[in-house]
């Protein structure tokens, strides 16, 4: 083999051996990385599935010591909080994302992008304090609005950056085609660029919703929690993660069961949302030639 044109200077069996070892190592690492996820799902499934019933989704909590009841108000509360957060967070995030993608080369935009990234990493409890200072203190009340503001602040950087990325992926050729037709820049943005990047923007919004629907810390002193059906947006509001947190700390067995069951449902909802994102991005993604 020494004089063969195929000779690469090494020992073939040895290389094949190393190849197999490294392949096995990579596979093992991937398995280790996935283990916590499977453990979490398995654990919540095992503990939570027995507690699931219709009452959990539709009934109010019973007083301490009384069995039964549910946390329907918490599920409704989480839905209201997500709606409020999206109402505040999505327009701001999308507009900021448009700004960064279309005018992103100025010094101001670079600072903005950096601060957005910083905001993504701010601990959510601190964002809760900000919302407390901004909304709870001036209005003298914990409220759904305060909780929505806290969650919106968490949403904004996620939506901003995914919108920016989605719009940057829209080929410049489309902008030029539209401008070349004598279409104004803002119309080009609205009717050509935004629709072309819509799949990515929707992905960002759905991921942000998945992220905030499990947040507990920022709601502690903004939404505060409640054991009753919601009465207006200016009053404290229940949320599933808050309820789970409170029930898990309490010394009652039936509350623990309800907490497991609620955690299971919340996790499934987030999972469905993530799968939904996959489906949307697969079908709605732009074929870019």
């Amino acid at each position: 083999m020494a004089s063969s044109a195929f000779n690469t200077g090494g020992s073939l069996p040895r290389r094949q051996f190393i190849n197999r070892v490294m392949g096995a190592l990579l596979c093992l690492s991937a398995a280790v990385a996935l283990t916590p996820l499977l453990l979490v799902i398995g654990f919540i499934l095992a503990n939570g599935i027995s507690g699931i019933n219709l009452d959990l989704l539709t009934k109010l909590p019973k007083p301490v010591g009384e069995l039964g009841g549910g946390m329907g108000n918490a599920f409704l509360g989480t839905a209201i909080l997500i709606a409020l957060a999206s109402l505040f967070g999505v327009p701001i995030g999308v507009l900021a994302g448009i700004y960064l993608s279309e005018f992103g080369n100025t010094g101001f935009a670079r600072i903005l992008r950096f601060l957005t990234d910083v905001l993504t990493g701010v601990p959510s409890i601190i964002i809760g304090i900000v919302a407390y200072t901004l909304v709870v203190v001036p209005t003298h009340s914990f409220s759904a609005v305060a909780g929505g503001v806290a969650l919106a602040i968490i949403m904004i950087p996620v939506v901003t950056r995914t919108t920016e990325e989605a719009l940057r992926r829209v080929p410049n050729a489309l902008r030029e085609a539209s401008l070349g037709l004598g279409v104004h820049e803002w119309k080009t943005m609205m009717y050509i660029v935004l629709p072309a990047g819509l799949g990515g923007i929707v992905t960002g919004v759905m991921l942000a919703i998945a992220r905030i629907s499990g947040e507990t810390a920022p709601l502690l002193f903004t939404a505060f929690g409640s054991r009753f059906w919601q009465d207006g947006l200016g009053n404290p509001i229940a949320a599933v993660p808050l309820q789970v947190y409170k029930y898990a700390l309490a010394p009652y067995k039936d509350w623990h069961d309800q907490a497991w069951a609620a955690a299971f449902i919340l996790m499934m909802l987030i999972l469905i949302l993530n799968v939904g994102v996959r489906v949307v991005t697969r079908s709605g993604f732009q074929k870019i030639r």
Binding site: E176, A177, L181, A196
Partner: peptide, 20 residues
């Protein structure tokens, strides 16, 4: 410039129909 581009159109190197 928008009016200019309205009366002087352009066709590009790669076909770029609006994908949506």
């Amino acid at each position: 410039p928008v009016a200019v581009r309205r009366s002087i159109g352009m066709v590009f190197q790669r076909p770029n129909p609006f994908p949506t």
